[in-house]
């Protein structure tokens, strides 16, 4: 009996230490699969907003996804209604559309029609106005706006500034 209780104790002690070790290893394994610091650091894209021409869509890249940047002409700015204004980013007095360039229907990349000032998705015929709001289904919502922070005349994609948080809270973007 004495031997058995000693063996039982050894078993429990080994099991206890082993369980702690197993949980610790699982933690280490989980962390090993996390995105690396270098990957996370590359998750920010800084755009110098003085480089863009009016009514010309430039495709930037943020976290491997294409992002449309479109600077409005004064006429486009003047025509904005309330809903369109909410989607617009104002930097240093100029108005911009900065949207993830993936159709919210099935992820195709829409193209910009410069003369009609609208985006057309060739895959299933979805349409967006120049602010990225839907004008023709099937897309369930307007183009998504990436997290952004306005910093002087630059825009940092991947960081959540006050203007972005406001958009998110008010359901203007996901």
């Amino acid at each position: 009996m004495k031997d058995n209780s000693r063996r039982g104790f050894m078993g429990k002690a080994f099991g206890g230490v082993g369980a702690v070790g197993a949980v610790a290893s699982l933690f280490a394994m989980k962390k090993s699969w996390d995105p690396l610091p270098s990957v996370k650091a590359a998750g920010f894209t800084t755009l110098d907003m003085s480089n863009y021409n009016e009514n010309e869509v430039i495709t930037e890249k943020w976290r491997g996804k294409p992002v449309f940047v479109l600077k409005y002409t004064p006429e486009m700015t003047a025509k904005l209604d309330e809903k369109q204004k909410e989607r617009t980013i104002v930097i240093d007095g100029s108005h911009y559309m900065v949207n993830i360039a993936l159709c919210t229907h099935l992820g195709c990349i829409p193209s910009y029609e410069k003369d009609n000032k609208k985006f057309l998705c060739a895959c299933h015929g979805g349409m967006y106005d120049f602010t990225g709001a839907v004008t023709k289904s099937p897309p369930p919502r307007g183009l998504d706006i990436p997290p952004f922070k306005i910093d002087g005349n630059t825009l940092v994609l991947g960081e959540e500034g006050t203007e972005y948080k406001f958009m998110k809270e008010n359901g203007i973007t996901l």
């Binding site: 989980k30 699969w33 996390d34 995105p35 690396l36 990957v39 998750g43 491997g64």
Partner: peptide, 23 residues
């Protein structure tokens, strides 16, 4: 549920990239 964190954890990146391919 928008569990984007889980998706990024599985990929090791925001999109499929080097970490994703190696794992």
């Amino acid at each position: 549920l928008h569990a984007d964190g889980l998706v990024e954890w599985i990929r090791g990146d925001y999109v499929p990239a080097q970490a994703f391919l190696t794992r």
